[in-house]
Amino acid sequence: MTKKTAKSIFWVGTLMSAGIFIWLTVDFHRQEPAYANTDRITDQVVAGKKVWHKYNCNDCHTILGFGGYYAPDMTKAYYRLGPNNIIAIVMEPEKVYKGSFRKMPRLGVTRREAEDLVEFLRWVADIENRGWPPQDEKYVRAARLREKEPHKLQKLDIVLGACGGCHSFENQGRDIAGDFGDIAKETRYNRDTLVRYILDPASVNPDSGMPPQNVSRETAELIADFVLGLR
């Protein structure tokens, strides 16, 4: 091969690849509204994104799989944790993660900022990204079914979908607030108290680190039955 041939390879290769890439980029922007629901980017979503940047969340947490690997991925966090849990975690991480092997810093997030962040994460969770991360798809499915067709859900799906962000059961879910097997053994609450506790923990136990749960009374009852049934 001569130097001249090599030079042509350089220019043809570079320009061809750049051409394809620019064409694909134009198409990406054309299709972005369908994949990322850009029409749903409200001012509050933008405010939430700024909160996300302000506290440098992305250097511990991944989102869309990018960023720090020190803490769980936030792409589908809205479905995995739900709004109340997210707010409780970012506002009082020292309480939520008191017994955890890994801590989250107290960042001084205000309630307003936490609510904006939730809106941002809600928008992110609905990006059509081929169901990534794989481990969170069960929460997405459970949350969507819970809204639309609760009768189709397995009891375990409901429980893990609603509680699996913090509680574990038979190695599923995240064990930061205790395993249901242990909780069932230790709890002294009856059904009514447990239902009240799930809906508003502080009303039963003021020292509880658990935030109020965004579930209907029926779901709370179903979860209570499930837990008490493990005894």
């Binding site: 090599a6 390879i9 350089f10 220019w11 043809v12 290769g13 570079t14 061809m16 690849s17 750049a18 394809i20 890439f21 694909l24 198409d27 990406f28 299709q31 972005e32 994949y35 990322a36 869309l64 799989g65 990018f66 990006i127 059509e128 990204n129 081929r130 990534w132 991360p133």
Partner: peptide, 21 residues
């Protein structure tokens, strides 16, 4: 030449899970 040929469009390996065609 080959770096740019493969690398420019190769950027796509970061676009699998971001919400893209």
């Amino acid at each position: 030449g080959l770096f740019l040929f493969t690398g420019i469009v190769g950027t796509g390996h970061h676009y699998y899970w971001i919400g893209s065609p």
